[in-house]
């Protein structure tokens, strides 16, 4: 049988979510932002909640997320997405509201909004893409940059004595009573993608049941900022990011996971 005979509509088992627009992602080749966009839209599509979901794009590489996600969206000032989400959810409690934010957006300039939205237990999802660097502005040090890791504003590597330590904000917010679900995922292998998708589904479930904030971190690559090829960046991420930012659930059903 020639493979061309297999390619028929009735044999289709996977295609990109119909909730993605036709516009090609503006992300660099191999960037995890794309995979994460895809997964979120897949879950929204499968749950059939496009009409009652509003997303919030950050300032960062994913500032144009609204160009790719075919749904109502707002674009927030740098770091303020959780404040927008707070208002949207309180005014429309029956809609699903999520933010999508990078590490600079969420864990540096927007730390206060992040922590207070979580602490109020806003019934929203915060999707947090941690690539350890400021992608959009050209690879500067982020609050999540690893010790010793070079970036354009720490060209000799992050010296924690001068620049302070990287911030594990997911562990931090998991301590707050308002947070019902906190998890750390990645999307660089098929297995991780499947797990990440389950975490996204769980987060929407938590919101449906009005249980509080879901905080879903994705440790992701920034091959441009890290100056590695996409595949090498994923390997580097496994070797260096995961030991510092271990994958897995941090808080489930309102209870911290004990390892």
């Amino acid at each position: 049988m020639d493979f061309k005979d297999i390619i028929k509509p009735e044999n289709l088992v996977y295609r990109r979510s119909s909730l993605l627009t036709d516009k090609p992602f503006s992300y660099c080749p191999g960037c995890g932002h794309g995979t994460i966009h895809r997964l979120i839209m897949e879950v929204v599509e499968e749950l059939g909640i496009q009409e009652i979901t509003v997303g919030i794009a950050p300032v960062g590489c994913s500032v144009l997320a609204y160009e790719f996600m075919n749904m109502d969206m707002q674009q927030a000032a740098h770091g303020r997405a959780p404040a927008l989400a707070t208002a949207l959810k309180r005014l429309m409690p029956d809609k699903y509201i999520f933010t999508y934010q990078g590490d600079g957006d969420l864990a540096a300039i927007g730390t206060a909004e992040t922590i207070h939205a979580c602490n109020r237990g806003e019934n929203i999802i915060i999707f947090f893409v941690n690539n350890g660097i400021y992608g959009m502005t050209g690879g500067q040090m982020a609050p999540t940059t690893l010790p010793g890791m070079p970036a354009s504003t720490c060209p000799f590597g992050r010296d924690v004595n001068i620049m302070g330590n990287p911030l594990k904000i997911t562990e931090l917010v998991a301590q707050l009573p308002g947070v019902h679900f906190a998890t750390r995922q990645s999307v660089h292998t098929p297995r991780n993608v499947r797990r990440a998708k389950k975490a996204i589904q769980m987060a929407f479930e938590v919101q449906k049941n009005k249980k509080g904030t879901s905080f879903v971190e994705f440790v992701s690559n920034c091959n441009s900022g890290w100056k590695l090829s996409p595949v090498a960046a994923n390997e580097w991420m496994e070797q260096h990011m995961f030991p510092f930012y271990p994958l897995g659930d941090i808080k489930v059903d309102g209870n911290l996971v004990t390892k």
Binding site: Q74, A87, H116
Partner: peptide, 23 residues
């Protein structure tokens, strides 16, 4: 909705969210 925000910055951005939804 009445909410004491964590700062003026948060408050104005809550307003952005609300206004963006037509409120």
């Amino acid at each position: 909705v009445v909410l004491q925000a964590e700062s003026e910055v948060a408050a104005i951005n809550m307003c952005y969210g609300a206004g963006g939804a037509g409120f």
